[in-house]
Design a binder for these strands. Sequence first.
DNA 1: AAACAGGCCTAAA
DNA 2: TTTAGGCCTGTT
Length: 273
Amino acid sequence: MSKIYKSFELCSKFDMDIEKTFECGQCFRWNMRDGVYYGASMDKFAKLWYEDETVMISCVAEDFSYWHNYFDLDTDYEMARKGLSINDYMTDCVETGAGIRILRQDKWEALASFIISQRNNIPRIKGIVEKLCENFGDIIDCEVDGMYSFPTAERLALCEVGDLVVIRSGYRAEYVLSGAKAVAFGDIDLEKSAEKSGEEAMADLLKIKGVGVKVANCVLLFGFHHMDAFPVDVWIKRVLDEKMPDDFNYADLGKFAGLAQQYMFYHARNLGM
DNA sequence: AAACAGGCCTAAA
DNA sequence: TTTAGGCCTGTT
């Protein structure tokens, strides 16, 4: 290991619950061992843990600002939560979800990951993403053996569908490649799309074969950090059907509707609706 | 063992 | 414009 990793104070434990943030289904490359979460974003590795009332991070010093941004530490979540408790159920969701932060993930990594997520459960998504990194990424210089970077779109664009059988993603392999090629060949510029309005960014994403409305909304929320994006999967659909009034419109939740969606998802999955 | 899992595509009405 | 059927794979 030639890179130098150092420990830093990242934020207060009251500003981020690392378990909820990593386990609420928005990311797929973080794991916990002995109370320490370790994982990666693209080609960067980090470890997070609690020390008294502080969230600590171990990372390469030059990457600290990258992680500060990744964990969205410049957003005031106390303020964002205001206005989400529009009924008793949402009040519960906001309460149990306290500490979740919406990560500012790499746009391409989010796109590829949520393409893979379709019609899959989280453990399998994580397995497929891991195999994708192991087979097409580069080894990351860190203390954990077998950590690989998320492959770039350019790297994957060189692949044929058959090359991807090793990741066991089934019919999604074709979709991953179509996304990789769209990005690598410039059919879509993720950085530029992220700056557009939600409707325009959505239209850009829907041009990719294998990206529908749900996946596009996940990319908007978790990759483009459009906090008003509201992905509706089977869990959220269940919540909307059973817990929310018939005339509910997610736009009523305002510009942080996406955060509310994540609170709902976490609550529904962990407390059985 | 049949159904289902954080959908999407295509064909047909 | 909406709806049905199929799809890779792994798990229960």
